[in-house]
Design a binder for these strands. Structure first.
Length: 820
RNA sequence: GCCCGGAUGGCGGAAUCGGUAGACGCGGAGGCCUCAAAAGCCUUUACUCGCAAGGGUGUGUGGGUUCAAGUCCCACUCCGGGCACCA
């Protein structure tokens, strides 16, 4: 497609201009109102793909728009540069992940600069930068000393494909690794954890105050999984000094207990198992331990819980009925949730019902189900078969039953969370080493601050053997104890890379103060982030971890006075799809943005991403897409031609000026409102409409006065500036060579006097159908509208002599005449 | 199974507070310019009946509320996403 100007020359000219002028560098003490705009920290996977382009187009629009609105806008950039892909690539090529990573960082940076997205590059943050690592390690040690990091042996998720353990959040519901797709194994390992569960309640409650998409909040609420209930004792029949402690959210159904179940890992299982049941129990425990999540749940496909439990031979006594009920062991009860043991209430719980069916256990209903209901009933109803609870509603009975358990069964109300502590150890090389030393005499010792950062040596063999690559490097592994000076051994695991993206936004706010991660007073000038932009795929992992870090940093004293929530407003953009599947590097179905940079240019590609649909919606890349991109470039070309054509000699007819000026001011109002509500596609459409108005008058009728036309064109360029920054800057400069750039101009303000129309169309409905349209004054009174509507010949015709029964007047928009 | 979204012309989408459905763009049709093409410009484009004037129908389906429903209510279908042994 032939363009009327040299797109490439114009775009590079302005990109160099913004870089050399430092237009978008901003200091912390800037007196203007502060605004922090941030796109999610990218993993450097090479040159930008369409998802990046979309992300940075939105982010850059926000930055430039808010700047023109008079704010000091913080717009930083950085790289989440540690991670598995670079390490795997390095193993394959017998190279070093740093080499891959830095080459790809350069590519991505070049792409975003080519897009014309502007940043304060002085604030660049890179995860593998030794300075950043030093503070990442300092934060880890501070958390550890505050008791928020701890080392424990636990059954963990081991991914054979990645050669490392994973956090719960990285395991998909089907038990596979979210990254490699391998079936995750359970291994018993000693690992480092962050005590995120200490913050479960706050992480849940603070969601309410965030301007985030509701579905992201719902996902986080589900993930945290708060459930309030009661813990109480079921005494052993054989030894009443011992009891099985269970947790339930339905204490009201206690009269329906017909059995109890313990998890295969339960500490009391050994004691509960009688000699004649030993074999069956051992077999079940062995099977449960070996089975993956997937295999376990697969057996339950048909809803049956057969073969998933075994009788222990013991009995406990129900505090409600005094009855002796059998104790089973079953893998559907989890060892690490609640007390690892439950009461079996098949009447009201579906799993219990399925288990009772499979093991032929009695079912006692305690809540009357609706007529004809089969199976377990978990809904509302009146209690039956429940002694002192009979006749009560579920809520009433819960309160009564809780009270009873407190008095008679060592009970107390408890809250449990689905959320587990965050496993942060990774048996990989390309990450930040955990700054810990193990000494035989001193135990676990933190590396002293002055010895940070702990850096991995470069000559490490990274082959995946299941142990940390660093452990195979004696020079790194063997060290001396910082406390006693004796021989010691370093921690050889690295930190989960999600720790890096959990505080980078704070480092952006103040990378200038020496000797600390950031200065709290400086960071507080920007925090919280006013607008955070990224993909929905981070709804749980990154966004939950970053919230935890922010709260913890405040509590351990590294960020005194900072807000406890990092991201005030979140926008999650849609993804790009090709033939129904997500466009991504790993799927190999990319349409590279580069090809458009030289044809339609960065501005054309930006306008396309803004115009193609609502920012939150997915974009289907189809055969038509190329045409739409061309159309966006055509829109810019028309602006170029209009702005560079010579109209000064044209005739002047002042009668048309007002109409043009009204179109201009209505567009100002529309575009501003649309940008504020993230309706970028309609904002672009409004500019297209304005251009259509201007073109029509300027070319077809030659009647617009130069002054009005100039005002209109200048306004158009200003409104266009956040969307197509290069072209608008270029045309503005040509029109105003002695003035500051369009990007430094104030955002246009609509004059209310010019946003109202002198005449509007009023419709008249007869019995609900539009039968006439009238051109009226917008200030028309109800009476005049009423009279004018009934006098209209079309209305008279449609009334056909019938008298209106009712007339509803909504001047000046509409009159509704009813005859029936 | 549960919880969220969503369904509007040939296509992407618009309609912000219950008040002119289809803005804007893509694609299509016709025209101007040109030796011709490209580019550009102009007209037209929901479906349908009609020569026309002018009607009728129409926002996934079926009901309802209302003078008036894409928008609100009830039931359902399909699509997308999340959750799903957490007691």
């Amino acid at each position: 497609m032939a363009r009327p100007f040299d797109v490439h020359a114009v775009e590079t000219k302005w990109q160099e201009h913004w870089a050399t002028e430092g237009t978008y560098e901003v200091n912390n003490d800037d007196p203007r109102e502060h605004f922090y705009s941030l796109c999610m920290y990218p993993y450097p996977s090479g040159s930008a793909h369409q998802g990046h382009i979309r992300n940075y187009t939105f982010g850059d629009l926000v930055v430039r728009y808010q700047t023109m609105r008079g704010k000091a806008v913080l717009s930083p950039f950085g790289f989440d540069s540690f991670g598995l892909p670079a390490e795997n690539a390095a193993i394959k090529a017998r190279s070093h992940p740093r080499i891959f990573t830095e080459a790809r960082m350069a590519e991505l940076r070049s792409s975003v600069e080519r897009l014309g997205a502007v940043y304060d590059w002085r604030r660049l943050v890179v995860s593998h930068d030794p300075t950043y690592m030093k503070y990442a390690q300092m934060i880890f040690l501070t958390f550890w000393r505050a008791g928020l990091a701890y080392r424990a042996t636990a059954p963990v998720n081991w991914c054979p494909g990645c050669g490392t353990v994973l956090a719960n959040e990285q395991v998909l519901p089907d038990g596979t690794c979210e990254r490699s797709g391998d079936l995750v194994e359970r291994r018993e390992l000693e690992q480092w954890f962050f005590r995120i569960t200490d913050y479960a309640e706050e992480l849940l409650n603070d969601l309410d105050g965030l301007e985030w998409p509701e579905r992201v909040k719902v996902m986080q609420r589900n993930w945290i999984g708060r459930s309030a209930g009661v813990e109480f004792d079921l005494p052993l029949v054989s030894d009443p000094s011992l009891a099985l402690r269970v947790f339930t959210t339905r204490p009201d159904t206690g009269f329906g207990i017909t059995y109890a179940v313990v998890a295969p890992e339960h500490p009391l299982l050994e004691h509960l198992t009688t000699p004649d049941q030993r074999e069956a129990v051992d077999e079940l425990v062995t099977r449960a331990r070996a089975a993956s999540e997937l295999e376990r749940t697969a057996t339950a496909e048909d809803g049956s819980l057969a073969k998933r439990g075994a009788f222990t031979g013991s009995y406990v006594r129900s505090p409600f009925t005094g009855a002796e009920v059998p104790v089973y062991v079953a893998d559907y009860v989890l060892g690490n949730y609640g007390t690892g043991a439950i009461m079996g209430v098949p009447g009201e719980d579906e799993r219990d019902f399925a288990f009772a069916r499979a093991y032929d256990l009695p079912v006692v209903r305690t809540v009357a189900p609706p007529a004809g209901h089969e199976g377990a009933y978990g809904g509302e109803g009146r209690h039956i078969n429940s002694g002192f609870l009979d006749g009560l509603t579920v809520a009433e009975a819960k309160a009564e039953a809780t009270q009873f358990l407190v008095e008679h069964a060592e009970g107390h109300p408890t809250v449990n969370y689905r959320l587990r502590d965050w496993l942060i150890s990774r048996q990989r090389f390309w990450g930040c080493p955990i700054p810990i030393v193990y000494c035989d005499s001193c135990g676990i010792v933190g590396v002293p601050l002055e010895q940070l950062p702990v850096l991995a040596p470069d000559d490490v063999t990274m082959d995946q053997t299941g142990q940390s690559p660093l452990a195979t490097h004696p020079g790194f592994r063997d060290t001396t104890c910082p406390q006693c000076g004796g021989p010691a051994r370093r921690e050889t695991d690295t930190l989960d890379t999600f720790t890096d993206s959990s505080w980078y936004f704070l480092r952006f706010a103040d990378p200038f103060t020496p000797d600390r991660p950031f200065d709290a007073v400086q960071a507080a000038r920007w925090m919280p982030v006013d607008q955070y932009i990224g993909g929905i795929e981070h709804a749980i992992l990154h966004l939950l971890y970053a919230r935890f870090y922010t709260k913890a940093l405040v509590d351990v004293g590294l960020a005194p006075g900072l807000p406890r929530e990092p991201f005030a407003r979140l926008f999650t953009q849609g993804m790009i799809r090709l033939q129904g599947t997500k466009m991504s590097k790993s799927k190999g179905n990319l349409i590279a943005p580069e090809r458009y940079f030289d044809t339609v240019g960065a501005d054309g590609l930006r306008v396309f991403h803004l115009f193609v649909g609502p920012p939150a919606d997915d974009v289907d890349w189809t055969a038509q897409t190329e045409d739409v991109i061309e159309g966006c470039a055509r829109f810019l070309d028309r602006i170029y031609r209009l702005a560079t054509s010579d109209l000064a000699a044209r005739e002047y007819d002042a009668s048309r000026d007002d109409a043009v000026r009204r179109a201009v001011h209505r567009t100002i109002a529309k575009v501003g409102a649309d940008l504020d509500r993230w309706s970028f596609n309609t904002a672009v459409a409004a500019l297209m409409e304005l251009l259509n108005v201007l073109t029509r008058w300027a070319y077809a009728e030659n009647t617009v006065s130069t002054a009005t036309f100039d005002e209109a064109l200048d306004t158009l360029l200003a409104l266009l500036a956040p969307m197509a920054p290069h072209l608008s800057a270029e045309l503005w400069e040509r029109r105003h060579p002695d003035e500051p750039s369009v990007h430094l101009q104030p955002w246009p303000i609509a004059d209310p006097a010019w946003t109202v129309e002198p005449r509007v169309t009023m419709v008249v409905q007869v019995d609900g159908k539009v039968r006439a349209r009238l051109d009226v004054d917008p200030e028309i009174t109800e009476e005049s509208a009423h009279a004018a509507a009934l006098a209209h010949p079309d209305v008279v015709r449609w009334l056909d002599g019938r008298a209106p029964v009712r007339v509803i007047v909504r001047a000046p928009r509409m009159v509704s005449v009813v005859t029936r």
